[in-house]
Deep mutational scan, measured.
Amino acid sequence: ELELEEVDLYRMNSQDKLGLTVCYRTDDEDDIGIYISEIDPNSIAAKDGRIREGDRIIQINGIEVQNREEAVALLTSEENKNFSLLIARP
């Protein structure tokens, strides 16, 4: 049973970094989820404190993420200042 949490992050300008590194968990081929492998200690996500390494990203801004490229594109989008992440953890 996964616990879901919605985390809203806000950046003042497009130079601010959310600070999330995303990856696949390669140990299970059936698991195509996108996971947070690293959080930059000086980033918006780290200061917010709710997202943890190992969390799975389900949605970004209401869009279900299917692959790492999509997640990276959404997280690094210059147009977005508000990010709503739906994350899951066991």
Rank of each mutant, 00 (worst) to 15 (best):
R25A: 08
L85N: 00
Q66P: 14
D48V: 03
R68M: 13
P90T: 02
E79Y: 13
I63Q: 11
K47C: 12
Q15D: 12
V65D: 06
I60L: 09
L74G: 05
D28V: 11
D31H: 12
Y24W: 07
T76I: 11
R11T: 03
L85Y: 01
L9H: 00
N61R: 02
I39K: 02
E69P: 08
F83G: 01
D16N: 11
S77R: 11
V65N: 05
D48G: 05
P41M: 12
P90K: 08
I87V: 08
Q66F: 12
M12N: 06
E64T: 04
N42S: 10
D8N: 02
N80I: 08
V65G: 04
D48H: 06
L18C: 02
I60P: 00
G33Y: 13
Q66M: 14
I60H: 01
S14W: 04
E3H: 11
I32S: 05
I58V: 13
T76G: 06
I60K: 01
L18G: 02
Y10N: 10
N67G: 07
S43E: 08
I39G: 01
I44E: 03
A45G: 06
A88D: 10
S77N: 10
A46H: 13
G54P: 01
E5V: 12
I34A: 13
I57W: 00
D28W: 05
N67H: 05
R50L: 02
E53I: 06
E78Y: 09
P41E: 07
G62L: 02
N13Q: 12
L20Y: 01
I58T: 11
L4D: 02
E3P: 05
D31M: 10
I63H: 12
R50S: 08
R52I: 15
D16H: 07
E6G: 10
L9M: 05
G62D: 13
T21E: 13
R25D: 15
D31T: 14
E78G: 12
A88G: 15
R11A: 14
D28K: 11
G33D: 14
V72F: 07
F83I: 10
Y10R: 14
C23P: 05
D55F: 03
A73C: 08
N80C: 09
A46S: 14
E5G: 04
T21C: 06
E29W: 04
D27Y: 06
A45F: 02
I87L: 12
D48R: 02
Y35P: 11
D28S: 12
K81L: 06
A46N: 02
C23W: 06
Y35L: 12
N67Y: 06
E70H: 09
S84L: 13
I39D: 01
I51K: 00
V72C: 14
V22H: 02
R89L: 01
V22C: 06
L9N: 01
C23V: 10
D31I: 05
I60C: 09
Y35R: 06
T26R: 12
N13V: 06
R52W: 08
V65A: 15
D30Y: 13
I63F: 06
S77T: 11
L2E: 11
G62N: 14
Q66D: 15
L9T: 01
N80L: 14
F83E: 02
Q59I: 06
V22R: 01
R52Q: 10
D55P: 00
V7Q: 00
I36T: 05
I34N: 13
R50T: 07
I44Q: 05
I36D: 00
N67V: 15
S37C: 12
D31C: 10
L4I: 05
L85W: 00
I39P: 04
E5Y: 13
I58A: 09
T76E: 11
D48K: 03
T76K: 15
D16T: 12
R52N: 13
E29G: 12
Q66E: 14
N61M: 03
A46P: 01
D31Q: 08
L74P: 02
E5W: 04
N80E: 07
I58S: 10
T21H: 08
P41G: 08
T26N: 15
T21V: 03
S77Q: 11
E70V: 11
D40F: 11
G49C: 07
F83C: 04
G62R: 08
D16A: 07
L9C: 02
T21L: 06
G19R: 00
D31P: 07
N42Q: 07
S77D: 11
D40C: 10
C23T: 09
E70I: 04
R89N: 03
S14K: 14
S84R: 10
N42M: 10
E5D: 11
S43L: 04
I51Q: 00
I44A: 07
I36H: 00
L9F: 09
E70K: 05
G19I: 00
I39N: 00
I57M: 09
I44W: 02
L2F: 15
N61L: 02
D27R: 13
L86R: 12
T21G: 03
L18W: 15
R56A: 15
D27A: 11
K17P: 12
G49Y: 03
I51G: 00
D30F: 05
E3V: 07
V65C: 14
E78I: 09
R68N: 08
I44D: 03
D27N: 13
D48T: 06
L18T: 03
D8P: 02
D16G: 07
D30M: 07
M12D: 11
L85F: 04
L86I: 10
E64G: 03
E1T: 02
A71N: 02
L75G: 01
S43R: 03
E64M: 03
I57Q: 00
N80H: 14
K17V: 14
I39L: 09
K81V: 07
R11L: 15
D27F: 06
S77H: 09
E79T: 10
L2N: 04
V7H: 02
M12A: 07
Q66W: 10
E29F: 07
E29I: 14
T26Y: 10
K47N: 11
E1Y: 07
Q15R: 07
Q66T: 11
L9I: 08
L75T: 03
N80K: 06
I36Q: 00
M12G: 12
K47I: 10
I34M: 12
K17A: 12
I63C: 08
T26W: 02
I34Y: 13
D40L: 15
I51A: 06
Y10W: 07
E29N: 15
E6C: 05
I44V: 10
T21P: 02
I63W: 05
K81Q: 04
D8Y: 02
M12P: 10
Y10V: 12
D8M: 01
